[in-house]
C-alpha cells in the first residue's frame, strides 16, 4: 500500500514536471509583435517591434527602481537593472507572446500582445 502511493505520486510528479516544462516551451512561441511595458499594472510604453528600424534603449525609472529596456527589431529585453537578483536581465530577449519578462522587485512586466495565445 505504501509502495503503491509512492509510485502513484512519483508518476503524478513526473507528469507535472514534463507537462509544465513542455507547455512552457510551447507557450513561449506565440506570435505577436506589440510589446507592452507596464509598471504596477499601468502601461508605460506600447511598441510595435516589427516596425523598429534601429535598436534603442528606454529608461524606466520609478519609485521602485531603475531598468533599461533594450528595443530592437522583433525583440525586447532588459539590458540593465539595479535590482539585486537581475532575473529580468537573465530572462534574455523576448521575441514572441506567451511568457512575459518580469522584474518583481520593480513591479515591471514586459509582455508581447497578440498572436495565438492558446498556442
Amino acid at each position: 500500500m505504501k509502495k503503491r502511493t509512492s509510485i502513484i505520486f512519483g508518476l503524478l510528479f513526473a507528469v507535472i514536471v514534463i507537462g509544465g516544462l513542455l507547455s512552457t516551451f510551447l507557450l513561449g512561441r506565440g506570435e505577436g509583435t506589440v510589446a507592452v511595458i507596464s509598471v504596477d499594472g499601468e502601461v508605460l510604453e506600447r511598441i510595435d517591434l516589427s516596425k523598429v528600424r534601429k535598436p534603442y534603449d528606454i529608461d524606466i525609472s520609478t519609485e521602485y527602481g531603475h531598468n533599461t529596456v533594450h528595443v530592437e527589431k522583433g525583440a525586447i529585453s532588459v539590458s540593465e537593472a539595479d535590482c539585486p537578483d537581475k532575473v529580468c536581465m537573465y530572462q534574455g530577449r523576448l521575441t514572441g507572446s506567451g511568457i512575459p519578462i518580469i522584474c518583481m522587485p520593480h513591479r515591471l512586466v514586459i509582455e508581447i500582445e497578440g498572436g495565438d495565445i492558446d498556442a
Binding site: 514536471v17 507537462g19 509544465g20 516544462l21 499594472g41 511568457i99 518580469i102 518583481m104 512586466v109
Partner: peptide, 19 residues
C-alpha cells in the same frame, strides 16, 4: 502586485520547479 494577469503564464514552469 504587478496587476498583470499575463504573469500566470509562469504557472506551468513554477509547478514543475515546485515538484
Amino acid at each position: 502586485v504587478v496587476k498583470t494577469p499575463g504573469v500566470f503564464a509562469y504557472a506551468p514552469v513554477l509547478a514543475a520547479s515546485g515538484v
